[in-house]
């Protein structure tokens, strides 16, 4: 009888192979454990064995039944798991299809650059100010130390809306307007549109500037250098070379032109050995800012005492910085507003 037990176990094991379907598992259950099942019959035959062998054999039979039940159960669970898995697989998406989303609107690259510029100064404690686009001659020229018949007015071809009113040619009049109404300490940044009577690939009749100035009791040229160097290294690369050289603006004295090292040729002026760099025209430097110590005449116009306060001012062209940053060669692209262009910017 013990031998037939082993035969039965082997037979069961041979039948419950990996491929067995749920139906086969149920059939096996009936065949072995059903009322007339092979194992059930073995229990019936227990009566036929000698009483002293019964306990041992009974234990072996119970063990085999437990084994068969366990195996059947395991197989069923496995089959259910596989079925669930199959159903999930049927829901498979093609993860290489494009993501589905609304097209975003894009911020204009000039706004992007203008925000970037003002953010650096705001983080340094500067506040934002604005002024009118239609300016009077006094604020746009005279109070900035450009009297009528001054040759410096030639530097800025002007749009007139009447004899005494112009479209501001720079953001510097905001300096005057702020100083007229407030007392130092002042640290102000003034972004905005400006206008010049000019129209070609590098000049637009409207463009944007960011003006900034700082007035307090002890502001020196070295502060101007510090603030602008910090700014340029934030907007360009942290290791950018910055150079200050003398220049002339009627409303600053001393005046400076601020250059950064050309990032295309790394300030060498040459690319690929011999060719003159097209971005900096071979000079190694890019003019980026005009700046200087506020001229005492300007202080006189706004009623400040140049013996008690000093300050610096600076101005920069937003389009120029954007063109350098993004390698744009035609300024008109900014104002044609083609989605093909605008969508290139994050």
């Amino acid at each position: 009888m013990r031998e037939s037990l082993d035969t039965l176990r082997n037979e069961f094991l041979a039948r419950i192979v990996d491929g067995a379907s749920e139906q086969e598992v149920q059939r096996l259950r009936v065949e072995f454990l059903g009322r007339k099942g092979k194992l059930t019959l073995m229990f019936h035959r227990l009566k036929e064995v000698p009483p002293e062998e019964r306990p041992g054999l009974g234990e072996a039979l119970n063990e085999l039944r437990g084994f068969v039940e366990g195996k059947l159960e395991l197989r069923l669970t496995e089959l259910k798991r596989r079925e669930k898995e199959r159903l999930l697989q049927a829901e498979r998406v093609d993860i290489t299809l494009p993501g589905s989303r609304w097209e975003r609107g894009r911020v204009h690259p000039l706004t992007l650059v203008m925000d970037e510029i003002t953010d650096v100064f705001v983080a340094m404690g500067f506040e934002l100010a604005r002024g009118p686009d239609i300016e009077d001659d006094y604020h746009n020229f005279e109070a900035l130390n450009m009297p009528p018949d001054h040759p410096a007015r030639d530097m800025q071809d002007t749009f007139f809306v009447s004899a005494a009113r112009v479209l501001r040619t720079h953001t510097s009049p905001v300096q005057i307007r702020v100083m007229e109404t407030r007392k130092p300490p002042l640290q102000v940044i003034a972004p905005g549109a400006v206008y010049r009577h000019d129209d070609d690939a590098t000049h637009s009749p409207m463009f944007h500037q960011v003006e900034g100035f700082m007035v307090d009791s002890q502001i020196a040229f070295s502060d101007l250098k510090g603030v602008l160097t910090h700014f340029l290294r934030r907007v360009f690369r942290p290791e950018t070379g910055v150079r200050f050289r003398p220049s002339f603006f009627p409303f600053t004295e001393p005046s400076a032109e601020v250059d950064i090292q050309c990032f295309l040729c790394d300030g060498k002026g040459m690319v690929q050995g011999q060719q003159a760099c097209r971005v900096c025209k071979g000079t190694g430097w890019l003019e980026i800012l005009g700046a200087g110590m506020i001229d005492p005449e300007v202080f006189r116009f706004v009623g400040y005492d140049a013996e008690r306060v000093s300050g610096f001012a600076f101005g920069m062209g937003v389009e120029r910085i954007a063109m350098l940053k993004y390698g744009i060669e035609d300024i008109r692209l900014f104002f044609q507003n083609e989605l093909r262009f605008l969508r290139q910017f994050a």
Binding site: M124, G125, F126, E127, R182, P185, L186, Q187, M214, D216, I219, F221, S222, D223, K225, G226, V227, T229, H230, R243, F244, R245, P246, E253, P254, S255, A256, M293, D295, P296
Partner: peptide, 28 residues
Amino acid sequence: REEDLIEEIARLTGYENIPSRLPLVRPA
């Protein structure tokens, strides 16, 4: 004016030889 002379001094000293520093900003 005095400022004009100071510009001449700065110019011939060389702007690159004037030190750079960050001012104290006093928010209004």
